[in-house]
C-alpha cells in the first residue's frame, strides 16, 4: 500500500522532471541559433496579431472593471479614516505592483495560452509538424520560436495597457462618481508611485510571467498526446499549470522586490 504510493510518487516526480527536461530542450532548439529576420519577421508580426491584438479586448474590459472595483472598495475603507485622498495611490500601486501583471498573466493563459496549446497539439496530431520536419523545415524554429517571442513581447504590453486602463477606471469611479478631488487623485498618486520601484518592477514581473505562461503553453502543445482527448487535457493543463506557476512566482518576486 505505502510502497505503492511511494512508487507512484516517485514515478510522477520522474515524469515531471523528464517533461521539464523536454520543455527545456524544446525552448533551446527554438531559440538558440542564428535568427533569420527575412523569414522570421512576417511570422512574428502574424503571431503578435494572433496573441497580442486579439487579447486586447478582454484586457481592456477587465482592466477597466478591476480599476473601478478597486476604487469602489478602496473608497469605502479609506473614507472611514478620512483618507480618501489616498485613493489614487491605492488604485495605482495595487495595479502596478500586483494586479496588472498577475491578472494579465492569468487572462493571457486562459485566452492565448490555451489557444496556442490546442493549435500546436492539433498540428502535431494531424502530422503537420512531422510533415514540416520532412520538408527540412524545423518546426521549433518555424512554429515555436515566433510564438514564443510574440508572447514575451505582447504580455508586458498588455499588462501596461491593463494597468493604465485600470487607473483610468479608478478615476472614473473615484473622481467622477464618488467625488474624490481629481487633483489629489493624481497628485497623491504621483507622490507615492516611483518609476523604478513600482512601474519598472511591475514590468519585470510581467516579463517573467510572460516567459512562464508562453513556455508552458508551447510545451504542453508540443508534448501533447496526439489525440482529441490528449489535446483537451493538454489545454486544461496549460491553464492550470500556468496559473499556479504564475501565482507562485508572483509571491517570490513580490518578496524579492517589495519585501525588503
Amino acid at each position: 500500500m505505502i510502497t505503492e504510493k511511494l512508487q507512484n510518487l516517485g514515478r510522477s516526480t520522474i515524469d515531471n522532471l523528464a517533461g521539464f527536461g523536454r520543455s527545456g530542450v524544446m525552448l533551446f532548439g527554438a531559440l538558440v541559433g542564428k535568427p533569420n529576420f527575412r523569414k522570421g519577421w512576417p511570422l512574428l508580426v502574424k503571431q503578435l496579431y494572433v496573441i497580442g491584438v486579439l487579447s486586447l479586448l478582454i484586457i481592456l474590459v477587465s482592466g477597466l472593471f478591476i480599476g473601478m472595483v478597486l476604487a469602489l472598495q478602496g473608497y469605502t475603507v479609506l473614507v472611514k479614516f478620512g483618507a480618501e485622498g489616498m485613493l489614487g495611490p491605492l488604485v495605482a500601486l495595487s495595479l502596478l505592483r500586483e494586479l496588472g501583471p498577475v491578472v494579465t498573466a492569468l487572462l493571457f493563459a486562459g485566452r492565448a495560452g490555451s489557444a496556442l496549446t490546442a493549435e500546436i497539439g492539433l498540428m502535431k496530431a494531424t502530422e503537420q509538424l512531422s510533415g514540416m520536419e520532412m520538408m527540412a523545415v524545423d518546426p521549433l524554429r518555424r512554429i515555436i520560436a515566433p510564438r514564443f517571442w510574440a508572447g514575451v513581447i505582447s504580455m508586458p504590453l498588455l499588462a501596461m495597457v491593463f494597468t493604465a486602463v485600470g487607473i483610468l477606471g479608478g478615476h472614473l469611479i473615484g473622481v467622477n462618481w464618488l467625488g474624490v478631488d481629481g487633483g489629489s487623485y493624481w497628485s497623491t498618486m504621483q507622490a507615492n508611485v516611483d518609476l523604478y520601484q513600482d512601474v519598472v518592477n511591475g514590468l519585470i514581473k510581467s516579463v517573467v510571467f510572460a516567459v512562464i505562461v508562453i513556455w508552458i503553453a508551447l510545451h504542453k502543445g508540443f508534448d501533447a498526446v496526439p489525440t482529441s482527448e490528449g489535446i483537451s487535457r493538454a489545454t486544461t493543463q496549460t491553464v492550470v499549470t500556468a496559473s499556479l506557476t504564475v501565482l507562485g512566482f508572483d509571491f517570490i518576486l513580490t518578496a524579492l522586490m517589495f519585501g525588503g
Binding site: M123, T126, E127, Q128, G131, E133, M134, M135, A136
Partner: peptide, 19 residues
C-alpha cells in the same frame, strides 16, 4: 539530417497539409 531531408520528400498517409 536536415540537409539530407532536403533531398527527400514524403507524402503522408493523412496528407498533413497545413490547415
Amino acid at each position: 539530417l536536415y540537409q539530407a531531408r532536403k533531398k527527400m520528400s514524403m507524402l503522408f498517409q493523412s496528407g498533413a497539409l497545413f490547415t
